[in-house]
Amino acid sequence: MRRSKINKMLNKIPTHFVIIFTMFVWLVPTIGLFITSLRPLPLINTTGWWTAFSDKNTQQTSSTTKFTLNNYIDAIVGYRGTNTYVEDCQSGSQSSSLKCNASDLLNPRGMGQAFVNSLLVTIPATILPIFLAAFAGYAFAWLDFKGRFLLFAILVGLQVVPLQMTLVPVLKMYAQTGMTGTFLGVWLFHTGFGMPYAIYLMRNFLGGLPKDLFEAAYLDGASHWTTFTNLVIPLSMPAIASLGIFQFLWVWNDLLVALVFLGGTKPVMTYQISNMVTSLGAGWHLLTAAAFLSMLLPMVVFFALQRYFVRGMLAGAIKG
């Protein structure tokens, strides 16, 4: 028994090696981005980020320090200038929209307001399609109806329709109904476009549930509705969780849909981020900091939904 335990541990060494090696490879660009986001622009341009900790490169440019939080500060307050927010505030030459105090966190060009707008867009646009997809996925997997296969074939095909093909007709529709520039319009559009994939994934997952489960439920006198709410939804939590993660992510990182249907009047995070860079590329170094700021929430969602990825949810439901 004990020996087998030691053997087991030894057996795991290659496992650890493979995992840690892959993690390392995957992390390198991210670390590079992170280090770059903490460096002043002149250094980013002239030396590699992996040399950031060595002393050599500070000699090249006299005045700058090796690390700085300025990129983050500028990104958060929505600084639009040629220096940095901190320098401008020290010299008193900041733009009229900035006050150089805590109120700048609410600057409409900054991240604060945009964060709220992004949340307002993302949460309903994540939950709505998953909800509706769970319904439809259940029907595709466990209910018989005419034209099931044809509808399913269309569903798979719809996934490949490029967003750009639908923008003009939908915008025309919105203009007629007064829905341009409203959150509702964005929610519905994201719901429509998230749905084919969401249904497709739900059907696959639900289709894999054992038949006995449903037979037993119906034998107990459950209706299809109670079966759906009390059995199907709880059992499909891993699928719902992974769908939730990705739908959240896609909506959160979307720029085009937000731009076309919401526009600049209700700026979301991606809009503010893309506007940090001028048309000639100046200010691109702020993108590195902004990327990290906008990544925080999706990572929280990822960790939060991890708890649904647990083995054995079906354990009790399956006999032999």
Binding site: Q113, L120, I123, P124, T265, K266
Partner: peptide
Amino acid sequence: IVILTMLLASCAKAAPVATEAP
């Protein structure tokens, strides 16, 4: 959650438009 965010969104709609503020 859905209802709450939708409510918040409708409030945001009523509030003065963000970017024009300055």
